[in-house]
Amino acid sequence: MNATASRLPAYVKLAGLQMQVAFAYRGQVLGGLLVVLLRILLLKAVWTAAYAGRSDADGVALPDLITFLTLGNLQLVLMRPMLVWYVQRRIHEGLIGLDLVRPLPFLGQLFAQQVGATAGVLPFVVLSVPFAFVFGNLAPPASAGAALAYLASLLLAYVIATLIGLLMGLVAFWTTQSLGIGVIYEFATQFFGGALVPLYFFPPLLRTVADLLPFQTQVFIPVSIYTGAISGPADIARALGLQAFWIAALAVIAWIVWQRARRIVTVYRG
């Protein structure tokens, strides 16, 4: 723990650099956000047409559904796994060796950079909130307690997204083809996470599949806590517990994969 504390300034520096990258490429960041806003507009149009004037479906009112989808898609922007692209690029350009000899654990460096990248994108996401409100809909959280639990759940979701991003990035040690995997992952998160259709509207079989995958912990669980669909201490605890379980499972897998990836690099150096 002490070692980590003494390395903190270095981690902050690394994170700061990634933050600047987001500002340097602000055109791309804004373009990406516009695509998300278009998706929100599409979701509102499709769902409004599907409801066809009904006040609610399965007890879900249309404005609440649109709030759910708007928030879900906005928060996915913050969880975009830059580590996939980053690790692949460093390997392609041969700079991975440099990363490995830095006096900081490699995985720690990666986490710091993901946090920095997210911090860089955050102001742009905040700027897009009014537009998201117009294109989609946004409502305040169900209660103060829901807001707190949402923040906790969002943080856990962020750790899960980062771990998955890390795992996909490490794939580049073997295939150098992780880019495509990253894109496929983004669509899987959108769909199975519930950012296009909330999981309660899934047909039973598809719902079972979604329940077994980690993606629901990134959108469906946090946003359901925000809107109050998941409420009461027991249900919230169970939801957060499921997220914690995924963090533990993914962390173990990531650690094992990293130990193997590391050995490959040693072989190349020799």
């Binding site: 769902w47 066809a52 769909f191 509207f201 047909p203």
Partner: peptide
């Protein structure tokens, strides 16, 4: 397409 399929099979 999965999105539109799920929506339409429900509505």
């Amino acid at each position: 397409f999965a999105f539109i399929w799920v929506v339409l099979s429900r509505f």
